[in-house]
């Protein structure tokens, strides 16, 4: 589906809905979600298409881990079967555990 050069994941559980990322996004691909998160905020969310991977939202976000930006998304090829998403998704290697591979959609480890 995506010809996007980048990809962004916003963890709804860590977002306080300040909207700084939404305002900062130069290609306007972020919006507020309809549903409140457990802290009572409407978190920002990715519309799903058009991210350039510029990282502005990441640096604008005051929460340490709420936003993950994948650069060069269109060149990523490593995929694996994610047991949570129950489909083949792109994966990346987690920062701390050298052998841990995460699903880029649900951020759960893939064995």
């Amino acid at each position: 589906m995506s010809a996007s050069k980048g990809h962004v994941i916003i963890k709804a559980s860590e977002c306080k809905g300040c909207q700084l990322c939404i305002e900062a996004c130069p290609v306007h691909v972020l919006k507020l979600a309809e549903k409140l998160n457990h802290m009572g905020y409407k978190p920002a969310t990715y519309t799903g298409e058009g991210c350039t991977g510029c990282g502005i939202c990441y640096y604008t976000c005051p929460e340490p881990g709420a936003i993950i930006v994948f650069k060069g998304w269109d060149t990523w090829s490593e995929k694996a079967m994610c047991p949570v998403c129950q489909k083949e998704t792109k994966v990346y290697h987690a920062k701390n555990g050298k052998d841990v591979v995460l699903c880029t959609e649900c951020l759960n480890p893939i064995p």
């Binding site: 990282g55 990441y58 640096y59 340490p64 881990g65 930006v69 994948f70 650069k71 990523w76 990346y92």
Partner: peptide, 8 residues
């Protein structure tokens, strides 16, 4: 890894 911007 520098292709991923994530929690340092």
């Amino acid at each position: 890894h520098n292709k991923v911007l994530q929690k340092p």
